[in-house]
Design a protein around this nucleic acid. Sequence first.
DNA 1: ACCCATGTTCTTTG
DNA 2: TCAAAGAACATGGG
Length: 296
Amino acid sequence: MPELPEVETYRRFIDELAVGQTITALEVLDAHVLATPPDQLRSALAGRTIKGTKRLGKNCFLELDNGQVLVLHFGMTGDVGAYRDAPDAPRFTRVALHLEDSGLRLAFIDPRKFGRIRLADSVAAYQQAKKLGPDALDITAAELQQKLGRRKTLLKPLLLDQSITAGLGNWIVDEVLFQAKIHPERLGVSLSDKEFQALHSAIQLVLATAIKQEANYRDFPASFLIHAREWDTSATPGTEAHKFCPRHPKVKIEKYYVGGRATYICPKCQPAPDALDAGAASKQRKHARAGAKADK
DNA sequence: ACCCATGTTCTTTG
DNA sequence: TCAAAGAACATGGG
């Protein structure tokens, strides 16, 4: 579940495990997750010492003693782990770094193999190459407003766009919009100054909370929408209360799709966009329909 | 057996 | 050029 808080948790793990250690070998169990050719990666890593770690959005970086960085992106199902002997490798370990002093191996675990490992010349170079915006923990309310305030696009896809701000993923955006009491289908251009402030505060609140709990969702406050997501209720069957808004015990959380992504909202807390903004969108749909009829 | 899924990137369509 | 929708990726789990 690697969105920003998970990746920050992974980074801290790696920081404790690997900083100061020298890489003795790169073990490739499945080359699919390598975005840099295996041979090139091996020669670049062997004998290098890990000087520190960094994170930008959902990306984690291991800083090498020659200035280069090893970039880890965890896709949808990536994780990290540590083990000593080969038979103890966690299930779905795809790549492992052998560490000299501790004799441990740092595992890159990824069942679905959407994750990637690559070499880059610096964090900044990678950020530029991938067109990543400022980290979601660093972006200011003013920057957010400047980037979104003229966009006639649905708010949810905008917040998921890593080039606007990096680190927000599907559940976090839902949580942020719920906390900010803004509907995911509002257009960027329709938000008031006050709403941008609320949006920014909500991003800070959700990320800080998630990082504090090391991204263990079930430890999040009861005021969070996340408890309404199916993967929570499925773990505790029959808990119907989870399906209701934390602020309105009688209002059911609605699930539907926005920009192709599963989206959860409280219809009372997050009123649907009206004529002022996404009226434009519904008008467009009407025109399209009328046009289609006229064509026949 | 079928459907869903936390992310990214490309293609298609309007 | 922009915006939206869909597909593709690879695979496990409900």
